[in-house]
Design a protein around this nucleic acid. Structure first.
Lengths: 124, 124
DNA sequence: TGCTTATATGCCCATCTGTGCATATTATAC
DNA sequence: GTATAATATGCACAGATGGGCATATAAGCA
């Protein structure tokens, strides 16, 4: 049962929901820089929240050089499928999506070429 | 967005999930006594957790004399429907269901006639 | 090797959360 | 009214949680 409460706990934070929402809407792998620029959050914050989403089994990572890309885990059981379905129904934060799109334009041939725009010390 | 995180937070506790599960499986209104006897929890604990489920909009109440009956709120939007669907997929705690059935047998014509069996001071 | 960039993590602190206990509230019966 | 049963709630406390900050780790590059 704890396994289930842990997933719900992971979803009970606004920042984590925002992270999941941009990952769901973009249907791509995103690196921490891109997430922090999209959500205007400090790097350590994105990193810590992503960690919890990973532990909950909702997000997976894929290392590539010094970048780490994160994406939604494809659901493997009914519970997980239902959770993702539920997340898709939650209205998205339009500002986040707008900034995400702006940020993604900066990729060249799918490669990250622009470093963190957001000052890592000042964003909340 | 807080509205959604609040629902997930309500679901992030084992006791609250157990309460929801017996309410879902029994498809009936249950009073606090019956819940505390089914889950073997202290009265104040059931009462407090039910309160949070009510605030989250997952459970509703119906007063009848000195009894208060609780039941699952029929979902009114897609998010809520998905949440209930998700809850139904979680494996139930068989012990809880067993004790619930035993407890329900004690009703006579649907009326509660047996008071709390569980000592309200000793159950955790 | 040394520098820079991307990400992770340990520590501190304020706040929140669940439990236990005691007590309050409400309704019913005598 | 008084006693009793069902439920709610305020308080205290221990443990968890999130944010901020500093720093660690790791990889690429000069």
């Amino acid at each position: 049962m704890e396994k289930f409460t842990d997933v719900f706990r992971a979803l009970s934070d606004k920042t984590r929901l925002r992270i999941l929402q941009i990952l769901i809407s973009v249907k791509k792998e995103l690196c921490i820089c891109e997430i922090m620029d999209s959500l205007q959050l400090a790097q350590y914050n994105v990193s810590k929240h992503i960690r919890e989403l990973k532990i909950a089994g909702l997000v997976k990572e894929h290392k590539e050089g010094r970048f780490v890309f994160y994406s939604i885990v494809e659901p493997k059981n009914t519970f997980h499928k239902n959770i993702l379905q539920t997340l898709k129904v939650i209205p998205k934060n339009n500002e986040d999506i707008k900034r995400l799109k702006k940020r993604l334009v900066l990729r060249i041939n799918g490669k990250i070429v622009v470093s963190c725009i957001t000052n890592r010390r000042k964003c909340r």
